[in-house]
Nucleic acid binder design. Structure first.
Length: 486
RNA sequence: GAGCCGUUAGCUCAGCUGGUAGAGCAACUGCCUUUUAAGCAGUGGGUCACAGGUUCGAAUCCUGUACGGCUCACCA
């Protein structure tokens, strides 16, 4: 049997139609909003409000009702906040009063017109003079005090989560704000926002497994992008010296509290800059975002306190490892691989992989406050420029906050011959079973052959940044519709 | 992919070592013209995730499946 509350609300809807009232009426345009009325009039005295004789109109969802028989209170919720309304038998027509009492349920949308007054308890309230039925909700809202708790329902029916839980609304407001701040920050510095393909013939720009899709007319497989990097750098070749793209990226990997198959990343590229310039830029950018969302330079995350105070620590991977194990770790392959094996690290004989994995295993968790980790080995950085002093490492860094990688950046490799060789080396590894390694991208190499100015670029994981700023322990809390099994 | 935990009314949750289902909110019917978790009296509402099994008897024990959560693995 169909649910009773649903059937009842449906029959109310039919009755409304029979009475000539459209339960999904259009055309009511509110002239005011709750936030505005509260900020303008909350401090007025009851007498001042009484004298005003001004009428206001609002529209929103009815989120609570307290019925006294001949009068009733309710709360109306909309974009700017919520405000209390009061319906009195004497102040409205018979029809309106019945409409409110018998037909308007919690969850429905209504428009109201009325005047402001203060209740005995001092709450600013709209005395309803006219009521407009806007939308019938056929299903009841989640419970009023506990809200919606069930995690699965919160993710699958995010609209209910947003209706019921203030915190969820705040998280997503912060998310929007973060994105907006980043755009403004880069726009002010003369970066150009661009859009590059999501469908790639070759999945490049990162070390990750791609989603595969198929173009029917061309009868060819295409990959959802794992990074926009190689296209953005083609634009730098084209003379767009400062570009950024903020958008969705897809990686066909495991799902966890820190991984969603589609996630939001910003990448930006600046010609005539080095990775060190980008450390400073990212410090500026993240601090700007933190200051304008948290309001201070410290952020509570889980049981920790993250301090964004500058300057941020800069840690060299090789130095850190030598300090821990002595110089053998970087000079003696035997020592390195034995160490890696003893720590249960899979490296497949790739030096750089062993080094970075050992570093991560040992130091990642200790990097609470923002820290730039640099000195990455060349063989795990096929798109980064070689360091001028040490050809085994590249001019690359990662930003860690709270033990998590938030950003990755480097001076770009703009030597086409070196790039071609790096791709070839990667393709060689790929053959050996490292299937997430790059394949040869001749089209990109030929772009470099036309000359890319010295450039540095960075990618920042927006979801992870928002997690830190909203004290969210799972990436699913900061993505409206996270990936779940259907 | 592995381990652990969970799934009971629209929502939030109880339900003990097995005896056939309970509360609050929501809903419904009354009463109530300043409440805000309004109040009072009454009523209805369940394929206990699904499928098997054990048992005289299963929400409860066992097995499997689905979905979810956490941890680990994988992974920028």
């Amino acid at each position: 049997m169909e649910d009773k509350q649903f059937e009842l609300r449906k029959s109310k809807l039919e009755e409304l139609r029979a009475m000539g009232i459209d339960p999904y009426a259009n055309g009511f345009t509110p002239e005011n909003n709750a936030g505005e009325l509260i900020s303008l009039y909350v401090s007025k005295s009851p007498e001042e409000l009484e004298e005003m004789e001004q009428s206001f109109s609002l529209a929103g969802r009815i989120v609570s009702k307290r019925d006294f028989g001949k009068s009733a209170f309710f709360h109306l919720s909309e974009r700017t906040g919520r405000i209390q309304g009061f319906v009195q038998k004497n102040s409205v027509s018979e029809e309106t009063f019945t409409l409110f009492r018998k037909f308007l349920d919690v969850g429905d949308f209504a428009g109201i017109r009325g005047e402001l007054f203060k209740t005995r308890t001092g709450e600013l309230t709209v005395r309803v003079l006219e009521l407009f039925f806007l939308t019938k909700a056929l299903r009841p809202l989640p419970e009023k005090w506990h809200g919606l708790q069930d995690v699965e329902t919160r993710y699958r029916q995010r609209y209910l989560d947003l209706i019921a839980n203030e915190r969820t609304r705040e998280i997503f407001k912060t998310r929007s704000k973060v994105i907006n701040l980043i755009r403004r920050f880069l726009d002010e510095r003369d970066f150009l926002e661009v859009e590059t393909p999501v469908l790639h013939p070759i999945a490049g720009g990162a070390t990750a497994k791609p989603f595969v899709t198929h173009h029917n007319a061309l009868d060819m497989d295409l990959y959802l992008r794992i990074a926009p990097e190689l296209y953005l750098k083609r634009l730098v070749v084209g003379g767009l010296e400062r570009v950024y793209e903020l958008g969705r990226t897809f990686r066909n990997e495991g799902v966890s509290t820190k991984h969603n198959p589609e996630f939001t990343m910003i990448e930006f590229y600046q010609a005539y800059a080095t990775y060190e310039d980008l450390m400073n830029l990212i410090e500026d950018l993240v601090c700007c975002v933190v200051e304008n969302t948290a309001g201070e330079m410290q952020v509570e995350y889980e049981d920790k306190k993250i301090d964004f105070k500058r300057p941020w620590k800069r840690i060299n991977i090789y130095d850190a490892l030598r300090e821990k194990f002595g110089s053998e770790i970087t000079e003696d392959d035997q020592f390195l691989f034995t160490k890696a094996d003893s720590m249960g690290i899979t490296h497949n004989g790739i030096r750089g992989k062993a080094l970075t994995e050992i570093f991560e295993a040992l130091f990642e968790d200790s990097l609470l406050n923002p820290a730039f980790v640099y000195g990455f080995p060349l063989d795990v950085s096929p798109l980064a420029r070689k360091n001028d002093n040490d050809p085994e490492v590249v001019d690359r860094f990662e930003l860690y906050i709270c033990g998590r990688e938030i950003a990755n950046a480097f001076s770009e490799l703009n030597d086409p011959i070196d790039q071609k060789k790096r791709f070839a080396d990667q393709a060689e590894m790929k053959k050996k079973g490292e299937d997430e390694y790059h394949e040869m991208d001749n089209d990109y190499v030929s772009a470099l052959e036309y000359g890319m100015p010295p450039t540095a670029g960075a990618g920042i994981g927006i979801d992870r940044l928002v997690m830190l700023l909203t004290n969210s322990s799972s990436i699913r809390e900061v993505i409206f519709f996270p990936h779940l099994r259907p």
